[in-house]
Design a protein around this nucleic acid. Sequence first.
DNA 1: CTGAAAGCGCTTACAG
DNA 2: CTGAAAGCGCTTACAG
Lengths: 339, 339
Amino acid sequence: MAKSGKNPTINDVARLAGVSKKTVSRVINRSALLSEDTRTKVEAVIGQLGYVPNPQARALALRRNFLLGLLHDNPNAQTVLKVQEGVLDAIRDTEFALVVRPVDRHSPTMLDDIRRFLEQQRLYGVLILPPISENDALAQLCLEMGCGYVRMGSAMLDDADHMVASNDREMVEAAVDHLIALGHRRIALIEGPEGFRSAFERREGFLAAMQAHGLDVPPEARAQGNYRFESGLAGAGQLLDAPTRPTAIFASNDEMASGAFHAARQRNLRVPDDLSIIGFDDSPIAAHIWPPMTTVGWPVREMGRAAALKLIAPGDKSASQSRFPAQLVKRQSVAAPKA
Amino acid sequence: MAKSGKNPTINDVARLAGVSKKTVSRVINRSALLSEDTRTKVEAVIGQLGYVPNPQARALALRRNFLLGLLHDNPNAQTVLKVQEGVLDAIRDTEFALVVRPVDRHSPTMLDDIRRFLEQQRLYGVLILPPISENDALAQLCLEMGCGYVRMGSAMLDDADHMVASNDREMVEAAVDHLIALGHRRIALIEGPEGFRSAFERREGFLAAMQAHGLDVPPEARAQGNYRFESGLAGAGQLLDAPTRPTAIFASNDEMASGAFHAARQRNLRVPDDLSIIGFDDSPIAAHIWPPMTTVGWPVREMGRAAALKLIAPGDKSASQSRFPAQLVKRQSVAAPKA
DNA sequence: CTGAAAGCGCTTACAG
DNA sequence: CTGAAAGCGCTTACAG
């Protein structure tokens, strides 16, 4: 019960509990050096007063804000939002809040901009989304500035304390294995943009699966994309117009896979009867396109939650998980090839 | 140039400029009571030192953080992210940062949760997205707590200082006019969820256009949806299975419109030859579905930017715009009805 | 137009 | 295990 609109402060608690501010501070910060009696007494007063420590004051004294930052270069709206939800899951009922900061990875001043941002906001820690999570100089910058960081990515690019990763390579292998098991032999790949680690991992997974089964991947069975719808449309067009048409396409993400659906339709090819398609991400469009798309889903929200836990409670057990298995989501864009 | 890793403080500036801290503070806060000479002198030192006021200290002294909050109940990932981009446009190169806070409008404790959040973070102001922006008690709460707020919505629910609104009703009227001009007479509606102002506005626009042209809207030409894909699929199914099938459908958002595409396909109806469809939002799926969808686009990012400006610079001219016209985006899901 | 003092609500060495 | 003093870097009355 705050008196006359004023929130109770540490002084109010100290006075009512008959201890010093410092002791109250120790209770707040869970210091070990504290008698059980004192702790109980102070906690009782805190509860009775409804006292909540003022984060602004703590931030000033600690030279550190209770803010978690989300650094991203808009990989994909759905992903960014799910990550946000995951972070919120982790910081619910804590004093932390989530600050978002889109950046432009093509800007020559990106690192300086981020440095200024970290300097000014004195974030407690940041979560970095791909593809900028692949930038080692950025991780280094965080280290220098004493700002915690966790990177999200498609492979372990950093040690477990600083990384949450999906297993893209294995999952793409599994997806291609699935196609092969159904009888597909001519399977084509639409790659993601050069320089993206996820694109690399997915391609490697694709090639590994093909090689393991002794299947050839001629140049005409590979198209370069950039993760955007249009590139999937163009890339699939190219693949489908090749002399020996593939019976299945793995597209490195769902947006490009959607483009492949359109390319097939333009050529009067039916999915999955004439062409099987598998995407990656399990974004909403995968479920809402016709026919519903088989794709690889990864636990974005859980990864966001785990990353936030690593930031705010590095010791915590639930913060120890760093690898997050993706899994194949089977829908209706895959069938055995026609004889 | 910070000496030995320490950032310069207001004291450093004061000392070097040969004035008091208070005077430096006046410069920072653009106080009018200041001689031109003093201001210039202090500003020179600030520039030379690369001094940036510490937001944590200001927050403590002012009892107010330089944080803008985004309160939303996940209407739609794309919209939320575009709003974030708009807010970032507005606060770029300022000391403000953006804090996101998803809420659950069905939670009985929502208002208390938000109160606690505002109390603790002492936000400078919040931007509230629909549908919770329609909650007057929430706006009232912000007022009580001395927290600035701006609501985003589909109609002017508040005065211009506290509102950015699109003109959904007019735009749906225009969209339906467009269908009628092409010769459609049996036009059906898939409504948004009850209790959503946007659903109400769009329905009213639909009905107004039909009435203006003397066209009947029998009950079988109206389906209830909830803005989700599945409800569009089911609703359109219902409409298309009615004895006299509509030649066109207006769905109150793109997700439901996508569902309508599927319902048509399931019935071997071609869009737009056998059925014209118009959606609302111009979300990515509208461009990526087949055929590309005609829909109503509204300037989400600009509205986010304007809302943020209202929050941080209420006097500013660019913060005065409150109405943001949506517009019809013509693609390929609309054609004249077959004779 | 400018400044000295007190205060925002915490934490950090330093003692004891 | 506990406390008195100083400090984090600003702003707010209050004078002058």
